[in-house]
């Protein structure tokens, strides 16, 4: 009976998240230094050539606010679904894209590029190096996975990789040629969606799409894995292949997003936790819900920082941590209180 209630609740959850995402989309398109009312917004999108003001509204909406909005949805969705997939694979509620070292290795790639000033040679070098960092981390983790390593080995390897990347990033900050370079690296590591354009979306979208497809297609195997590794294998799940699929999917989607926006934490950790109860603890159902939830959370955080920022921009990674950390603590304590 309870299962049936939850079963009915699951489609409602996704519908609710989609409606919330649409509402936040409207809010996001309306918020900005230039005040644009809803009627002006519609007018600018429908009759963009009618007047000079409408044309400028259209430029602001299409070339400034829309790329930011789409990127928030892509990045939030990638982080959310990656967190859900990793938590399902590793059967560890603390798993998230940052845990396996993909985010930090992507960050290290970007920091190396900034340290050596390579970004001045071509603006595409920074995202390329960030994605290379993520790809190297992925290759290493796949190599470990191929040798039939267990999930614990995979987690520990990810932590080691993440720590090494963090140490090398700190070294680069320590030896940075000038305070301006330090500031550049730190700001990049804090993550931002400000002044991103469709060029950035073009860069990351193909990788995000492939990553999302890989992650979405492993739902049934993750459901089987909830019974245990041996039981899952007896049901035909190839565990090393599943590991590779999720690691590659995470690296492609999160690595390419980090390459464009910088590192953004907590979304992959908090969102699956928040939604798991609503999907009756089914990893397969959690994937889509976490993608939608991640997009909602990141878009809400972006709206919040735009409302809070005055002359100095608050960084997105800071806002997600400020929202995510207390909320996560609340969830953990709430679960603790429930257990007799």
């Amino acid at each position: 009976m309870k299962g049936q209630t939850v079963y009915r609740r699951y489609p409602w959850l996704n519908s609710g998240l989609v409606i919330l995402l649409l509402l936040l989309t409207l809010v996001s398109l309306r918020i900005g230094p230039v005040s644009i009312s809803t009627s002006e917004l519609i007018n600018a999108l429908v009759h963009s050539q009618d007047s000079n003001q409408t044309l400028r509204h259209n430029m602001i909406l299409i070339e400034l606010r829309l790329p930011r909005l789409l990127l928030a949805i892509l990045v939030g969705g990638s982080l959310g679904i990656s967190g859900a997939a990793l938590q399902g694979l590793l059967r560890n509620p603390l798993a998230e894209p940052g845990l396996i070292g993909v985010s930090s290795c992507a960050g290290l790639g970007a920091v190396i590029c900034l340290y050596f000033g390579l970004s001045t040679l071509s603006i595409w070098l920074l995202p390329t190096m960030a994605m290379t960092g993520a790809a190297l981390a992925t290759l290493l983790l796949c190599w470990i996975g191929r040798h039939h390593a267990g999930n614990l080995t995979l987690i520990l390897s990810g932590i080691a990789l993440s720590s090494l990347a963090a140490a090398l990033t700190s070294l680069a900050l320590n030896l940075a040629p000038s305070p301006a370079d330090v500031q550049d690296m730190v700001l990049w590591l804090l993550g931002s969606l400000n002044y991103r354009s469709f060029n950035d979306i073009q860069l990351c979208f193909p990788f995000v799409l492939i990553g999302l497809i890989l992650l979405m297609s492993c739902g049934a195997k993750l459901d089987a894995l909830t019974l245990g590794e041996a039981e899952a294998q007896s049901l035909g799940v190839n565990l090393p292949e599943l590991q590779r699929q999720i690691i590659v999917g995470t690296a492609l989607s999160v690595g390419s997003c980090v390459a464009v926006t910088g590192t953004i934490g907590f979304v992959g950790l908090v969102v699956p936790h928040l939604l798991r109860r609503w999907v009756d603890y089914h990893p397969s159902r959690l994937l889509l819900s976490s993608a939608l939830g991640g997009a909602v959370l990141l878009l809400a955080a972006d709206i919040a920082l735009r409302l809070l920022s005055s002359t100095q921009e608050i960084m997105l990674g800071v806002v997600t941590a400020l929202i995510g950390a207390p909320f996560f603590l609340f969830l953990v304590l709430q679960q603790k209180w429930r257990v007799p």
Binding site: S119, S178, A180, D181, N194, Y195
Partner: peptide, 17 residues
């Protein structure tokens, strides 16, 4: 300005718009 030309700070100047 030398201090403004770092990758992160000069993002506005690189925007296509």
């Amino acid at each position: 300005h030398v201090r403004d030309n770092t990758h992160g700070k000069s993002r506005l100047s690189r925007h296509p718009l």
